[in-house]
Design a binder for these strands. Structure first.
Lengths: 231, 231
DNA sequence: GAAAAAGTGTAATAATTGTTACAGAGATAA
DNA sequence: TTATCTCTGTAACAATTATTACACTTTTTC
C-alpha cells in the first residue's frame, strides 16, 4: 500500500486523495499527534477503546484484526500508509478487536473523534471522501460475504464467471468469452478453498460442457448450465 | 423491524433515532419525495444507479441483495421501516446490486445525495448517527466474515465459545461455565451449517473432553484444548 | 538461453460436512 | 393433562473438499 512519488518519498493517502505528507493533508486548526513505537512494542490491546483515527504512517504492524483491505482473521501484517480500525471510530462499541504490535520502528498518527468531526465540518470534500471510503469498504465486505456464503466451489465459480459476464464479455461464434482477473492460486485464496480443489472443480465444469478454459480466458459454453450451477 | 408506539402507529427509525413519522425526522429545507408502488411493481433493477437514500416507509419488498440486517445472498423480504442499499449511496460504484420488487402496496421515500449532504451539514447530530449506523454495520459484516472464514464447524464452535468466555463467564469448581445466546438451530444458521452437523460437532467435542453441555450452558473442561481447536 | 520460480493438471486417500430419517425431550397451548 | 410443536441427539450414507504428492508448463530472472 506504500505509494511513492517521483522522488521515491512515500505519499500520504488520506481517504483516497494523495498528499506529499500527512502535514499537508490535514487542514489548519485540526489537532493531532504522532507517536513512535519500537519493534515489538504494543500499540493497542484487544478491548482498548478506540477514541479516534489511527493511521500507520511509517513502518509496519502485526495484527489479527480484520484489515483495512478486507483480509481475514489470521494474523496479518499491515504496512504504512494505512488507517487502523477506521471502521470502529464511530461504532457504538468502539474498541480494538485484537492486539496491534509494531513489527519494526513505526509511527502512528492519532486524531481524536471530535477533531475528525471538526475536520469534516471544515472540509466537506473530505467528508465525502470518508463516506466513499467507508461505503467502498462495506461493499467489499458484502461481496466477500456473498462469496463465502455460496457453499460449493462450483457454485462459487459459476457466480464469479457470471459476474464477469455481466460486467464485460466478448462474443465469439455462438458463445461468450470472459477473462478472469485472477490466476487459479489467487482465486483459490479469494474463495477460501485449496488450489487443487479449485482446479478439480474447473476441470469438472469443463468436462460437463459448462465452460472451456484457456489460461485466463473462459468460454461460456452453457449460460443456462452456469445459472443452474449457482445453487 | 417495525416499531410501534403507544397508539400502534409505526414510528420512524431514522438511523437510530425514533420519530413519530418521517416528516418530523427530516429537517426544514431538505427536499425529498415519496412514491407508491403496487404489488409486484419493480422498484429498482440490478445495475440501476443509486443516486441517494431510499427508505421503505410502508409495505414490504422482495430482494436478493445483502440486506441492511446483514442477511445473505438468497432472496429476502424486507419490511418497513428500513433503508434500502444505504451502504451504496456514497460508494464509487453506486448501483443496486439486484432487483427490488414490491410484495404489496408499498411506499418509498427518496432523498438525493446532495440533500443528504446538506442535511448532514445542517444537523451534525444526524451525521454522527449516520456514521455510527454505518460503522455498526461494518462491524457486523466483519464479524460475519470472521465466522464464515473459519473453516471447520469445531473451530467455529471453539471461536464462539471462547468469545463468550471473554465477555462473561462464571467459575464453577475448576472450570468455567458460559451461556450460549442462541439455540442449536439458530447457531447452525449463524454458522451457515446444517443443524445435525452442528449437533455432531458438539457431541464430539463433548466426547473429547473439551466441553460439557447442559441446555444452553457450556462448561469449558479444557481451555487449552479449545484454543487449539480454533485452528 | 539456462536456471529458477511460479503456476497448472491430476490422482489417491483422508477428513469433513450434508442429507435424510427417526425417536425422544422439552415447551406451549387448548 | 393431553396434544402439538419445537428443539435435540443420533445414525447411515452420499457428496464435497482437504491433503499430499508429483509431473508438467509457463513465466521470470540472471
Amino acid at each position: 500500500m506504500q505509494t511513492k512519488n517521483n522522488q521515491g518519498i512515500p505519499k500520504f493517502n488520506f481517504f483516497g486523495e494523495l498528499y506529499e505528507n500527512y502535514q499537508s493533508a490535514i487542514p489548519e486548526g485540526i489537532e493531532y499527534s504522532t507517536k513512535e513505537y519500537n519493534k515489538n512494542e504494543v500499540i493497542a490491546r484487544q478491548g482498548d477503546s478506540c477514541k479516534g483515527l489511527y493511521i500507520l504512517i511509517e513502518g509496519s504492524v502485526k495484527t489479527e484484526m480484520i484489515a483495512e483491505n478486507g483480509g481475514l482473521l489470521h494474523i496479518e501484517t499491515i504496512y504504512a500508509v494505512t488507517p487502523l480500525a477506521s471502521a470502529f471510530i464511530f461504532a457504538t462499541i468502539n474498541c480494538f478487536p485484537v492486539d496491534v504490535t509494531a513489527l519494526e520502528k513505526s509511527k502512528i498518527l492519532f486524531m481524536a473523534r471530535e477533531q475528525i468531526l471538526k475536520m469534516f465540518q471544515m472540509n466537506h470534500e473530505l467528508l465525502m471522501r470518508y463516506l466513499r471510503y467507508n461505503a467502498d469498504k462495506t461493499k467489499f465486505l458484502s461481496d466477500k460475504i456473498q462469496m463465502l456464503s455460496v457453499k460449493t466451489i462450483k457454485a462459487k465459480l459459476a457466480h464469479y464467471i457470471l459476474g464477469l459476464h455481466m460486467s464485460a464479455q466478448q462474443k465469439e461464434g455462438d458463445s461468450f468469452i470472459v477473462f478472469m482477473d485472477k490466476n487459479q492460486t489467487e482465486l483459490a485464496a479469494y474463495f477460501g478453498v485449496t488450489r487443487p480443489s479449485l482446479a478439480r472443480a474447473l476441470s469438472e465444469m469443463s468436462r460437463d460442457g459448462l465452460i472451456s478454459i484457456n489460461k485466463k480466458a473462459v468460454r461460456i459454453r452453457s449460460l443456462k448450465g452456469l445459472m443452474e450451477a449457482r445453487g
